[in-house]
């Protein structure tokens, strides 16, 4: 027989529990759990890069530009265009590109979102 207030017992049980919400941006930042292999901001290692331009060819969002510096061709990454698919890291033959667990990619200046 249906009776109103079926969830009351559940609500009382949860009164004694800790809250499920994390007060993320200002407090409890350490409670934000990120698993291994999270796809976040790109980290680029210039010493390993051989300038093969593979990342530029596979990027679906055109977030990578190839420029020339004193050691030859190299990519730069525009994080404001990146869709965090991880294709560049996957196809890089020397593993010069890695995706870190930095997920706060917000800036007032576009230049702060440039990975060199």
């Amino acid at each position: 027989m249906p009776r109103p207030g079926y969830m009351v017992s559940e609500i009382y049980k949860n009164l004694l529990k800790k809250r499920a919400t994390i007060l993320y941006p200002f407090k409890e930042r350490e409670l934000v759990h990120l698993p291994k292999g999270f796809r976040g901001r790109i980290i680029f290692n210039r010493d390993k890069c051989i300038g093969c331009q593979m990342c530029f060819r596979v990027c679906p969002a055109q977030a990578i530009k190839i420029i020339e510096d004193e050691r030859g061709k190299r990519p730069i990454f525009f994080m404001y265009r990146c869709i965090y698919c991880g294709s560049c890291a996957e196809y890089c033959p020397v593993k010069a590109i890695e995706l870190s667990d930095i997920f706060e990619n917000i800036a007032f200046n576009k230049k702060d979102l440039l990975v060199k």
């Binding site: 759990h33 990120l34 698993p35 291994k36 292999g37 999270f38 796809r39 869709i83 965090y84 698919c85 991880g86 995706l99």
Partner: peptide, 15 residues
């Protein structure tokens, strides 16, 4: 969502 994040690397857009 946590499971999907652990398996694929992202919560919603799994790629």
């Amino acid at each position: 969502l946590d499971l999907l994040e652990t398996i694929t690397g992202n919560r919603v857009v799994t790629a």
